[in-house]
Simulated scan of single mutants.
Amino acid sequence: MAKKKKKNRALPQTVGINISGVETHAHLDLEDFREDLPEVMARAKECGIGKIGNIFLGPKAYEANKGLFDDYPEVFFSLGIHPNNSDSCSDEDLEAMLRAFQSDKRLKAVGEIGLDFYWDRVPYDVQEDVFRKQLSLAQDLDLPVVIHSRDAHERTLEVLEDFGWSGRPLLWHCFGSDAETAQRILEHGWYISIPGPVTYKKNVEAQEAVKSIPVERLVLETDCPFLSPEPWRGKRNEPAFIVFTAAKVAELKGMDVNELWGRCAENAHKFFNLSV
C-alpha cells in the first residue's frame, strides 16, 4: 500500500503580520499545552501577538493554573463557569470568583459564560440560573462579559435583553452564525469575536456575516486548542494560528491584513481595558 503523502501546511510566520495584536480567547492552561508552552508562546510572539487572553473554566482551574503564566506578562485572564459545567457550580464557587476578581488585576472579564444547547449535558434551567448569577457578578464588579452560546442564540439574547445588558460591555465569543444574528448582537452595542472556522470553504454563512460586521466591533480568537483554521484544520490549535483567521477576515472585509489586525487589536485593548 502506498504511503500517504504528508500534507505541506503553511507556517503562520508566512502570513506577514508585522504589528502587535491581540489573541482574545485561548485555553493555554489545558493539558494540551503542558509539554511545550514556552515554544507555543515564542511562536505567538514571532507572529505578531502582543497579548493573549487566557480563559479559565472556573475558579478551581484558575487557582490551580494561574501560576503557569507568571513568566508571561503578556497574558491577561478571563474567568467564568462554562454552561456545560454549570451543574457543579456552588455558592462557594461564585464567592471564590468574586475574591479572585477583587484581588487579581490580570482578570479582565467574566467569561466564558452563557448557554449551550448543543451538548445534552446540563438541564437548560440550570445553565440559565448560573448564567444569570454570573451576569449579576459582572454587573456588581462593573466588568465585561464573554459569552458562550452554542445552538442557543435566541435564548441567550432573550436572557441578556431581560437582564438589561444592552449597552453594557459584552463580547460574543466564537461567532459562527448568520448576518441576521450578528446584527441583533450589534444592535446592543456589543462586540463579536471571529474564530478559525471562518476559514473553512463551506462556512459561507459565517463569511457573509463577517462582511456585514463593522470592523470597529470585531476581535479575533483561536479558542485553542480547539477549532484550528485552515491550513491546520484537524491539528491542535495554538495562538500563532490566529494569523490565518486574520488573513481570511481581511480578505472578506477587503482590507490589508495588517490594517485589520491592528484595528482588531485596538478593539480588544478597549474592551478588556488592556495597557499597551
Rank of each mutant, 00 (worst) to 15 (best):
D129N: 14
P59G: 10
H25C: 15
S103D: 13
H188K: 15
D120E: 15
R9T: 11
L220E: 03
V75A: 09
H153F: 15
I81G: 05
E208F: 01
A268T: 01
S86D: 06
K3T: 11
N237F: 08
K51C: 12
W172P: 00
V249Q: 00
G16H: 02
K253A: 06
K7T: 14
N258G: 05
F272E: 01
K7C: 03
A61R: 08
L94M: 13
L143N: 00
R9M: 10
E221H: 05
V204R: 13
A96W: 06
F271C: 05
A44Y: 02
E23A: 10
I194F: 00
H188C: 14
R34N: 11
E128D: 07
G164H: 04
Q13T: 13
D162M: 03
N273F: 12
P59V: 11
N8L: 12
N18D: 14
E180I: 11
Y124G: 09
P239V: 14
G111I: 10
P197R: 04
G111W: 03
P197K: 03
C264T: 15
G80S: 08
V75G: 04
L218I: 14
S193H: 06
R184L: 15
P225A: 13
E259F: 04
N8W: 03
E95D: 13
K105E: 15
E46Q: 15
F226P: 00
R9P: 01
V159N: 02
L79I: 11
S228P: 01
E266N: 13
K105L: 11
T181F: 07
G176I: 05
K60A: 13
Y118H: 14
E74I: 02
L11E: 15
F33R: 06
R233C: 09
R106V: 07
I213W: 03
D151L: 08
F76A: 11
V75M: 07
G16L: 06
G67F: 05
E35I: 07
D70F: 11
A2F: 12
S166E: 02
E128S: 10
A268G: 05
N54R: 03
L218Y: 02
F117W: 14
L94V: 07
F56E: 03
L37P: 00
Y200S: 08
V122M: 09
L115D: 01
E251Q: 14
L143M: 14
G50W: 02
F271Q: 07
S228A: 15
A268K: 01
R236M: 12
G50N: 09
L135P: 00
L30V: 07
V159W: 02
V22M: 06
Q134F: 06
I185D: 01
N8G: 08
H188P: 01
Q183I: 05
R263C: 12
G167I: 04
V145D: 00
G50E: 14
G16Q: 11
D36Q: 09
I81E: 04
G21R: 02
P83N: 10
S136F: 00
W190G: 07
P169M: 12
D32G: 04
K211Q: 15
I192S: 06
R155W: 06
V219S: 11
N18S: 13
G48K: 03
L143Q: 03
C174G: 02
F131Q: 01
G254H: 04
W232E: 06
E251A: 13
Y62I: 02
G50P: 01
W261R: 09
A268M: 03
F226R: 01
V15H: 02
S20K: 14
H27R: 10
